[in-house]
Simulated scan of single mutants.
Amino acid sequence: MNAVPDVTLNNGVTIPQLGFGTFQIPPAETRKATLTALESGYRHIDTAEMYGNEKEVGEAIRDSGIDRDDIFVTSKLNNQFHKAPDARAAFDRSLEDLGLAHIDLFLIHWPRPKSGNFVEAWQTLEEIYRSGRVRAIGVSNFQPHHLRRLLENSVIVPAVNQVEVHPYLTQDEVRAFNTEHDIATEAWSPLAKGMVLNDPVVVRIANDIGRTPAQVTLRWALQRGDIVFPKSVTRERVQENLGLFDFELGEADIAEIAALNRDERTGPDPDNNG
């Protein structure tokens, strides 16, 4: 099994830098895919109520036979539950669906600046954190102006900000803000839904070092310090995505991949999503 390094969050909790994502994996396929990931060596699983597959993730964790304390589980607060009573109920529901006594990391899924109230949601997550039922709390898809407002109205600094990051959307401003405030950056859609895998620069670097374009792209993200969690439902790809820790990219390769940035999103703009 490849040795996946840990990242220490701002409250001392450690999280594996490479995880397994379950976004857009249908519930009927989630148990098998998650079990495959765990059997292959992953110990970090990312899910959300919005994905509709928390129950199946929980089943895979139990069926794996792996000690619960050895698996890091992330879930997220769904968009319509920013009000305090709704956020409390949503967290309880995620715990129940996962079948777990605690969640390792719980995130506000989207800021929803037009219709939500992420400050109220965050203050509720702080309350849940103090209860001991979650080991760390954070946010997802927050831009610096969202984070500034949150920090002005909170006690706890988010442990994580999970945002879309890949070579076509390097998110330098967001990542710099995160670093300044000791917030770990997690990269969702690290392969840009597969778009970067045919990029001539990525393909050339992969050919030069005898790796796949996916491995090169994921390794680029890891060497920049991001936490990544690619997803796949095929055992071969799941295992391929784990093979990232027996090689390194050179500084020139990292810079050349970063230069591919064109601020192109594959998902919604956080300022316009709700």
Rank of each mutant, 00 (worst) to 15 (best):
P190K: 02
Q215A: 13
K193H: 07
N161M: 07
A159C: 14
A214P: 01
I227L: 14
E173R: 14
W220E: 04
V160E: 03
M195R: 13
P213L: 07
D199V: 01
D182W: 09
V203I: 09
A214D: 03
K193C: 05
L197G: 03
V202I: 15
D172W: 10
A206T: 05
F229Y: 15
V174T: 15
H181C: 07
A159W: 05
A214E: 01
Q215D: 12
A176Y: 08
A221W: 00
V163D: 01
I156T: 09
R224Q: 14
A187H: 02
V202A: 05
L218H: 01
D182S: 14
Q171N: 11
R175D: 10
S189L: 05
V228E: 02
R204Y: 06
Q162Y: 04
F229L: 15
A159K: 05
A214T: 03
S189C: 10
Q215V: 12
V228C: 06
F177N: 11
W220S: 04
R224W: 09
Q223Y: 06
Y168F: 15
E180C: 09
M195G: 00
G210L: 10
A187W: 00
K193V: 03
T217F: 00
W188T: 02
K193D: 03
L197A: 07
I183A: 02
Q162A: 04
A192Y: 00
F229T: 10
I156D: 05
Q215Y: 10
P230Q: 08
F229N: 11
R219V: 05
E173T: 13
R224P: 06
H166P: 03
V163Q: 00
E164D: 07
S154L: 06
T170N: 11
L191S: 01
S154T: 15
D208Y: 08
F229E: 12
Q223K: 11
A187R: 00
Q215S: 13
E186V: 06
R224D: 09
K231N: 10
E180R: 15
E180G: 07
E186I: 02
N198Y: 08
T185H: 06
D172V: 13
Q171T: 07
V165N: 04
E180N: 12
V233Y: 07
P158Q: 12
G210D: 11
A176Q: 14
P200N: 11
V228A: 04
S232H: 08
A192Q: 00
D208G: 13
S154M: 08
V155H: 09
Q215K: 13
V201P: 05
V203K: 12
V155N: 10
Q171K: 11
R224G: 08
N207E: 15
E164F: 02
E164I: 03
I209N: 08
D172H: 12
P230R: 05
D208R: 15
K231R: 14
A187M: 05
A206L: 06
I227V: 15
E186M: 12
T179F: 09
P158W: 09
Q215N: 14
E164W: 02
